[in-house]
Structure formats: C-alpha cells, structure tokens
Design a protein around this nucleic acid. Structure first.
Length: 568
RNA sequence: CGGGGCAUAGCUCAAUUUGGUAGAGCACCUGCUUUGGGAGCAGGGGGUCGCAGGUUCAAAUCCUGUUGCUCCGACCA
C-alpha cells in the first residue's frame, strides 16, 4: 500500500467532540469518523487493525474448538419474548417493525438466536460439547454513548456460546475460553488482568472480566498484591469487620437538627464516622422499597444489594415511598420501620455496638444502636463497595484499586436460556436435559480503543506490532528526488516480498509532515530513505516506541528490521 | 430522564452582550521559492451563521419552538 492511495485524512487539530485519548487519536489519525452519536465509520487504517484483532481472535477461538457462524442482526421478537428479555431489555433495545407491522430488534446480543439454532438440531449428548461463535455488529441504544468506540450504540463484538451436557463440561469449556482470552489479549500486546466479576443481568453463576488497565477505563477493579485475588469493584467480596466489643447501652433518642448527611451528623455529635450507620433507600422494578445499611464510612454496592434481594433493577427511592414504609429521608434506620419492608444490612453493620442511626423522624437519631439487638428481621450479607486498603477476602492483605477497560467477559450461564427456550438433549440414560451453556464476549472496537489508551505519547499512537495497521512504513524524505523514491520503492518491494506488512509513504510532502503523520498514526517501525541513503547507502530504522534509530545498509536493513519487529 | 454548555468555512474558533452586507488560523486550489520534524511569498475557491417561526426598515446577533452534539448524574449483559 502507498500513502498516496490511502484514505487516511489526518487532522492537525483535535475535534471538539473527543474527550478521551483513544477517541482523539483515532479521529486525528484518520481512523474513524462519526455518523451520529455512538455510530462510527471505520476508515482503512482502523479497519486494518480491526481485522488483525479479529484474526487473532479467530485463530484462538478455532484452536479452542470454536466454529464461526454468522447470525442475523435483525431478529424476530418472538424469541426474545420466550426468554422474557423483550421486556427486560427496555429502551436499550433498538426495535424495528417490518412492512407487516411485525416486531424485530437489532440484536444487542445473541443468546436467544444461537440457542434457537442449537435446540432445533442438537438431540443427543453425542453432539456435545459444541462451541459456536460470531464476530458481528451488535446494537444497544445506550442512554449515553461516549468515548468514541469505547461505548457506542453499534459495535463489533465476538461472542462465543458453549453448549455442554453438564456443569462439569461447561467448566471445561469455560476454562478453554479463559485461556484463549488470555492468549488473545497477550497476543494483542495489551497489559490486562482477568478479574472475578458479577454476572449482571445476563444471569448464571461465575464470570470473569478481562480488564485492560488504563486510567480512562470505566470499570474499577480491586486486586491483591500478595495473593492473586482480583475482582471488579462490583464483585469484590468483603468480610465483616469486627468492632471493638463494648457493653451495649440502652437505646437513646437525641436531637440532631439538620444532620442529613453522615459528615454533618458525626461532626454535630463529635463522634467518628465509623460509629454511624448510613442508610440508602432503593426501589425495585416493581416499586418495592429496599433499605440498605452500611457503616458510615462505607459505600453501598448496589449490585450486591440487587443480588441479595433477587431484583432485576434498582433505582433511588423517592421520598413518598420512603415515608410510606415509615422512614424519614436523611434520618433512617431499621428501628421502627414498617414490618415486612425489605431491609439489607451489611455484615459489618451487624458487628457494631452503640452506634448512631436515624430515628425515622426529622432531626433525630438514636444513640447506642446495637444492630444485633435492635434491627429485628433483616437480610445480613456483604453489600459494601470495596475501597482501597480493604482486606483481601483470601489473604487479608490490603487491596489495591486500579481502573481499566472491560475488553472481554466470560460467563457461566448454566441452563437459564436453554430452559426458557426448551433447548434440550438426551443424555446417556435417555433422559431429557437442558443444555448447559456459557457465553464469552470480546468488544473488538473496544479492544482497539483500549490498545490506544495504553500505548500512546504526545505525538500519537504507538501500536503493538500485532495489531498495527501496518508494521513498517518506508519514508523517502523527498519523494520528488527520483533516486530517493526509487530506492524507497526497492526497499518497499523487498520488505513486501519478505512478508512484512509495509506501507510506502510516497507522498510529495515535506519530510516534517510525513514524520508527524507517521508518529501520529503510530507505525511501529519507520525506515527513512534520505540523501544519506542515496549517497552513502545508509538506511535509517527508527523505532516509534523508543525513538531509537539504527543505521543499516542495503544488505543488513532487512534482517535488522525483522529482529526489531520481533520485539515490538 | 434530570442538570449545565454548545451549534458560524473541512478543522479549531472570533463576531452575538450593544441588530446594520460574516472574519482569523489551519486545511484546500494555482504559481514561484524551499525540501530530515506539521515551510515562505503572492494569488484564489469555499459559509442560506443547525432548522422552523416571530419581532424589526434591517437578525448570526433579540424572542419562541425544534433538532443535533457535548459534559455531569442516573444507567451499562
């Protein structure tokens, strides 16, 4: 490929719409252009990288036993109604009607579709295990698309679905995928971490996120430096903290005017925040009120609350709903709440003695609240959000927190979808059983964005070799000088013949312009052909990542280029 | 959905407050010079000022509505 033929419109200035580095650089490097919120065109450079990432994924999926298929993007509503997700998905689903008024959606994911394919054909345990995957566009009408390709409404995703005869088989498939994912992200040259994750709305039990470490990431993970524990902030388990035991004193109501927040309360009563109990009120999708309580200095982990009450969705409760169960916004505690109200208390709270909690009336709190004695019937479990320094649930060492981009996630689904869609088979004893499923996704565009977030400097992108749009760029310093262009052409030809993915920057631009573009786009290796090459035979190799240059000859440059590429 | 901000040339922005024939830099085209880190000079092309109404002798500018984008929050398989 020649740059003079390549459609890669680079920008000197940053378009105002971009917020994060990967988005800015992809726009500036002429890789993507926006069509509408969360919808992008992939220009040639981006598409080459996408195809390289897809190829790595394909190779790893195939060698793990996966078979690639393509499924419809437009999917009939009937399937989604069978699993109930036609309603559950809500506004996030793009819906369309055909000319007859029949309902369809643009597939946000493909569990229903793939399961329906398999249920019609798989009858026997002899046909299992089966792993099918697709790399296709998926559609989610995100409330707030942002960060370029990181959170779009149309995005390229690889999804593999595994079907096994039992849970043991599913675990084997899961492990294969876990290992394949490790290979994929390693081959893409990314620094990442597999972390334990919550299954979320997709359901099932057991999940890992593959998180590419980057400050711009939307997910937060906790990890232990002492053992290998690592989990998403939603998932990170926390054991109860035992309070210093003291004698429980009798409950006492005190006036605490205007102390609607924990900070104000602790300050007013001159007590440490660790002696207070914080309340957060939620309502479920059915408007049922759920009250959650954590220690004053802790935060509530909504996902854990959600799981503890088995709800589908939670939102902050409105004041009327809080009052309806006998609570007072800003001054809530389980003490005196209407019987039958769902109350979830963090395990640490239950260890507290003589704490301060709301009195369920304005401007008043109780002193000497001892949850074990005073809370009555509550759900006790871990609902705390992990904080830096919290003890590791495995070894007790202080946890570290870092941010990352969730590039992939693997799930053990179990039989949730196969049961809903009646996808069954006959086992060895002739008994009908539901297929045991797993699903495994990778955001392809997001992986590309993550690679840029992790590999850039003030001049632009620094591609890992494996996913660079081109591995090498050959730059004649002045393409108007026939000798330089000829030599550059020769080198370009030799590299191509040697199987190197190479680009020739034959534009009749000034050297500075071409160098700036090369740095911006981020080709891992640049071979410069200037006057010195023509006159003295000196061919310059420059490594984008380090800025190192090597002076070689016509005879040695190829071997040196290969040697350098191996390290990038 | 709630709360901010923005919408003027391909890009980044000025002109809007105080109504009077729309500007700069970069990009683009032509010529000359230049040629190892986004060159110089000269000339040139390009905008119904997001859209629709209204006020006015006159609207990019004031008013109303509307659409889109963007940031914060809620949300996120």
């Amino acid at each position: 490929m020649r740059t003079s033929q390549l459609y890669a419109p680079t920008l000197r200035e940053v378009p105002a719409e971009a917020e994060v580095i990967s988005h800015k650089l992809m726009l500036r490097a002429g890789m993507i252009r926006k069509a509408a919120g969360g919808l992008y065109t992939y220009l040639p450079l981006a598409w080459r990288t996408i195809k390289k990432i897809e190829q790595i994924i394909r190779e790893e999926m195939d060698s793990a036993g996966g078979q690639e298929i393509a499924m419809p993007i437009v999917q009939p509503s009937e399937l989604w109604k069978e699993t109930g997700r036609w309603e559950v998905y809500g506004d996030e689903m793009f819906r369309v009607n055909d000319r007859h008024g029949r309902e369809f959606c643009l597939g946000p994911t493909h569990e229903e579709m793939v399961t329906s394919i398999v249920r019609d054909e798989v009858r026997s345990y002899k046909q299992l295990p089966l792993m099918l995957y697709q790399i296709q566009n998926k559609y989610r009408d995100e409330i707030r698309p942002r960060f370029g390709l990181m959170r779009g409404r149309e995005f390229i995703m690889k999804d593999l679905y595994s079907f096994d005869k039992d849970e043991e088989g599913m675990r084997v498939s899961y492990k294969k995928m876990y290992d394949a994912y490790t290979n994929i992200f390693t081959r893409c040259g990314l620094t990442f971490r597999p972390v334990e994750a919550d299954n979320g709305a997709i359901g099932g039990g057991g999940s890992h996120e593959f998180t590419v470490l980057a400050d711009a990431g939307e997910s937060s993970i906790a990890y232990c430096e002492k053992c290998d524990y690592a989990a998403s902030d939603e998932k990170a388990e926390l054991k109860a903290i035992h309070a210093v035991q003291e004698e429980a004193l009798p409950l006492e109501k005190v006036a605490t005017p205007g102390t609607k927040t924990i900070a104000l309360l602790a300050d007013y009563l001159k007590i440490p925040v660790e002696k207070t109990i914080k309340a957060v009120a939620y309502q479920t999708e059915t408007d049922e009120v759920v009250l959650a309580f954590v220690r004053g200095d802790h935060e509530v982990n909504e996902v854990k609350v959600l799981n503890s009450v088995g709800a589908i969705a939670l939102r902050m409760a409105d004041e009327a709903a809080i009052r309806a169960v006998g609570g007072e916004p800003g001054f809530m505690s389980p003490v005196g709440i209407k019987k039958g109200t769902k109350i979830v208390a963090d395990a640490t709270v239950m260890e507290m003695v003589n704490a301060v909690a709301g009195a369920n009336e304005a401007d008043a709190h109780y002193k000497n609240v001892t949850p074990k004695r005073d809370f009555g019937e509550v759900i006790v479990t871990d609902i705390r959000l992990v904080q830096e320094g919290d003890p590791c649930p495995r070894c007790g060492a202080p946890l570290k927190m870092t941010r990352g981009i969730e590039a992939g996630q693997v799930f053990m689904l179990g039989t949730k979808y196969s049961e809903a869609l009646h996808a069954t088979f006959l086992d060895e004893s002739g008994k009908e059983k539901p297929l045991v499923m797993g699903c495994y996704g990778i955001g392809v565009g997001r992986t590309m964005a993550a690679a840029i977030e992790q590999n850039n400097d003030k001049d632009g992108i620094i591609w890992p070799r494996a996913i660079a749009p081109f591995e090498v760029v050959v730059v004649p310093v002045n393409a108007k000088v026939p000798e330089q262009l000829e030599l550059a052409e020769k080198i370009y030809g030799e590299l191509k013949a040697a199987g190197v993915d190479v680009l020739l920057d034959d534009r009749k631009e000034r050297a500075g312009v071409k160098f700036k573009d090369c740095d911006l786009i981020g080709y891992p290796l640049r071979i410069t052909v200037g006057p010195k090459a023509v006159e003295e035979g000196t061919i310059e190799l420059r490594v984008r990542k380090t800025g190192e240059t090597f002076n070689e000859t016509k005879e040695t440059y190829l071997a040196k280029a290969r040697e350098i590429l191996k390290t990038l």
